[in-house]
């Protein structure tokens, strides 16, 4: 579902170029959960945003659902992201002006789908993450775990195949983190490909594969856990 080959990315800090990724290659297959671990500043989040097309790599190839992201125009890139990639962030990033179901419907509405169709799909996604009864609630009234499951529902709504999650359990207590992780694993078992950036060993323990990064490079790639 995701193939990244020799990705390089640098940031400029004044006149100095700071490398964030120095040739990272990675494959995430459908129905698998890959965890990326490493110290702060090692390039994990940059890898995630490059993989999701939120920013372009300096060099290398990112292929999602069979399409090279570099070959897409700006508008095609947005369309591809809406249809194939779902993001989950540590601090939820729920649009505060929309209620739960409207947040989940958002990518489909942006994609020009009919509102009724978007609503049906959103209800299905909310049910899949176990919060179907919270559809009309406002994000402000939800707990952290519930908000993160709204984000998960938004990420899978419309049968998108790739979930990119940045510390999805980082802001949650252990009980809520466990529920979110269960949901995430359930989605993977349903066929989604998932790339998770995390410091949480519990997440790594349930991943099909754990990739460790250091200074912009993949230093270890092994199977530490099982997403059962």
């Amino acid at each position: 579902m995701l193939r990244a080959v020799d990705i390089r990315k640098s940031y400029r800090a004044g006149t100095v170029s700071v490398p964030a990724l120095r040739g990272v290659s990675l494959d995430v297959a459908a129905g698998s959960l890959t965890a990326v671990m490493g110290a702060s500043g090692c390039g994990k989040s940059t890898l995630l945003t490059v993989a999701g097309g939120l920013q372009a790599a300096d060099s290398g190839t990112v292929v999602v659902a069979g399409v090279d992201l570099a070959s897409l125009s700006d508008s095609a890139s947005h369309r591809h992201r809406r249809r194939h990639i779902g993001f989950v962030f540590q601090d939820y990033n729920i649009v505060p002006t929309l209620n739960t179901i409207e947040n989940v419907m958002l990518p489909l509405e942006l994609d020009g789908r009919k509102r009724s169709h978007a609503r049906t799909e959103a209800e299905r996604a909310l049910a899949a993450v176990g919060i179907g009864d919270l559809a009309t609630r406002h994000p402000d009234t939800l707990s952290g775990g519930q908000r993160q499951r709204v984000a998960l529902a938004r990420a899978i709504c419309g049968e998108r195949g790739l979930i990119l999650a940045d510390e999805p359990t980082g802001a949650l207590d252990s009980a809520a983190a466990g529920q979110v992780l269960d949901t995430l694993v359930g989605l993977v078992r349903g066929g989604a490909a998932c790339l998770v950036v995390t410091h949480d060993e519990a997440v790594a323990a349930r991943a099909d594969r754990v990739v460790r990064m250091k200074d912009g490079l993949v230093v270890d790639e092994g199977r530490e856990g099982t997403s059962s």
Partner: peptide, 16 residues
């Protein structure tokens, strides 16, 4: 800006 970033993450174009 945070809301705008979220919209970008879910596929909203710059024009939107």
């Amino acid at each position: 800006r945070r809301e705008l970033a979220t919209l970008a993450a879910v596929g909203a174009s710059g024009r939107f």
